[in-house]
């Protein structure tokens, strides 16, 4: 188990692949910042390598990936593999997008325990991140 940190939660949000749908990730970005978290967003077309380097350089506790183009399997699992290669498996992974049920198991196995379809209340994402990363501090925005 990784050590439980204190202070503001640090999160990297990223859009891997060629998908340009960034309405969702920009909403999450704003909600996490409004909730007091420190959030870095890569912008569109971030490669898995760039995402992992940014995560390490910024010392984040969680990475959130978004894909609505059906390429989630490819890109999400690649990020997870690269993190493992860097010995950074303790970074919490979460994802958002149109993710068919049949892909969910494989993504969970790759470490994506939290997957959010479009329409997920922003509060749910904030609270679940808090519960995982600051378990002693209670939830609520």
């Amino acid at each position: 188990m990784p050590e439980v940190r204190t202070g503001p939660i640090r999160v990297l949000l990223a859009k891997p692949g060629l998908d340009g749908h960034d309405r969702g990730i920009r909403l999450v970005l704003r909600a996490l910042r409004d909730a007091g978290m420190e959030v870095i967003y890569t912008g569109l077309r971030a490669t898995p390598n760039a995402i992992v380097s940014a995560a390490l350089a910024e010392d984040v506790e969680a990475i959130g990936l978004s894909s609505l183009s059906g390429a989630h399997q490819q890109h999400f699992t690649r990020v997870s593999e690269l993190l493992a290669k860097e010995g950074a498996e303790d970074v919490l992974l979460f994802g958002g997008g149109i993710i068919p049920k049949k892909d969910v198991e494989e993504l969970r196995a790759a470490g994506f325990s939290m997957l959010y379809p479009p329409g997920t209340p922003l509060e749910t994402i904030v609270n679940e991140l808090r519960a995982r990363l600051r378990p002693g501090e209670g939830s609520g925005v």
Partner: peptide, 10 residues
């Protein structure tokens, strides 16, 4: 290489 995982998806 940029197309990996994206071909024919959308």
């Amino acid at each position: 290489p940029e197309a990996i995982g994206e071909v024919g998806r959308v």
